[in-house]
């Protein structure tokens, strides 16, 4: 009996398909079987290693992220990216400077040095470069300058807000934002936006490890400039006073309450 070449090739195709399907099934089974172990380990590991957030991956230069992801030299690559960003800073090239600063922040999200300086570049340096590029402070109308400064503040705050979202336990980020708002709004409007700044100080104070000056500034801003917030601030600091462990801490909180947040008679 003659062999049918057509049925042979069909059989061969079927065998080949089955070969790959079996391999696929084994890998899928391994993936499913190992998933509970992987998920468990990943939950703790992820918190500790500071992986890139999808947002950060979207906005950063892809090559750097890929290198950082693959190579493991994240700190080193972040430093190199920062140096490159600094080169563009010295050339007053805002877009390229920001690109590399963001890359450094993405590669080392836990490093506040990059975050603080990037936010300061965006808030204080970039608007000045922009105004100079448009003809200088004497030629650009006041209203346009104000818009540029407002946009710079919003951009810097967005950087800090994104960072806070990825590092929700870091009070220094909120302190940075609070300071930036106070200084920047003072320059734009002639007076600091105490309410907004106090709001960020409050968020910092709610986290463990908040610096003492954050409590003091919060109490002062609210006590002297934000009457609507006084009751809430008083309640918050009263709680801190009750929870204070040392006599020094107790004295600190009671002095703040007495100096800035005395109830209205």
């Amino acid at each position: 009996m003659e062999n049918n070449p057509h049925s042979d090739s069909l059989l061969e195709k079927f065998r080949r398909t089955m070969k790959y399907a079996a391999a696929f099934a084994v890998i899928f089974a391994a993936g499913t079987l190992s998933a509970p172990l992987g998920d468990f380990a990943w939950t703790e590991a992820r918190e500790r290693i500071g992986t890139f957030s999808p947002k950060a991956l979207e906005r950063s230069a892809g090559t750097g992220v890929a290198l950082g992801t693959l190579g493991g030299f994240r700190t080193v690559l972040a430093d190199i990216a920062w140096l490159r960003g600094f080169h563009f800073w010295s050339e007053r090239d805002a877009p390229d400077c920001l690109k590399y600063c963001e890359l450094a922040m993405t590669l080392a999200p836990e490093q506040l040095f990059f975050l603080e300086n990037t936010a300061n570049y965006v808030a204080f340096e970039f608007p000045v470069w922009e105004i100079r590029k448009r003809g200088g402070f004497l030629r650009v109308p006041e209203s346009v300058q104000r818009e540029i400064q407002k946009k710079a503040l919003a951009d810097a705050l967005k950087i800090l807000d994104d960072a806070a979202e990825n590092n929700p336990d870091e009070p220094k980020i909120f302190v940075l934002a609070a300071q930036l708002i106070a200084i920047k709004t003072d320059r734009i409007y002639g007076a600091p936006d105490y309410a907004k700044s106090a709001e960020y100080y409050r968020r910092a104070c709610e986290l463990p490890g908040a610096p003492w000056f954050a409590f003091a500034t919060y109490a002062k801003f609210v006590g002297e400039h934000v009457p609507a917030e006084r009751a809430s601030a008083r309640a918050f600091l009263d709680k801190r006073l009750a929870a204070a462990k040392t006599p020094g801490q107790k004295r600190f909180f009671s002095e703040l309450l007495e100096e800035f947040l005395v109830p209205d008679s």
Binding site: T75, F113, F114
Partner: peptide
């Protein structure tokens, strides 16, 4: 000898990062 290029991180983290990167890469 490259720790001069480190910004903000601890020196040991910088050194360890070279080692970790080298092992994996």
């Amino acid at each position: 000898s490259l720790t001069h290029f480190d910004f903000g991180d601890s020196e040991l983290k910088f050194i360890a990062d070279f080692g970790f990167g080298g092992i994996f890469l």
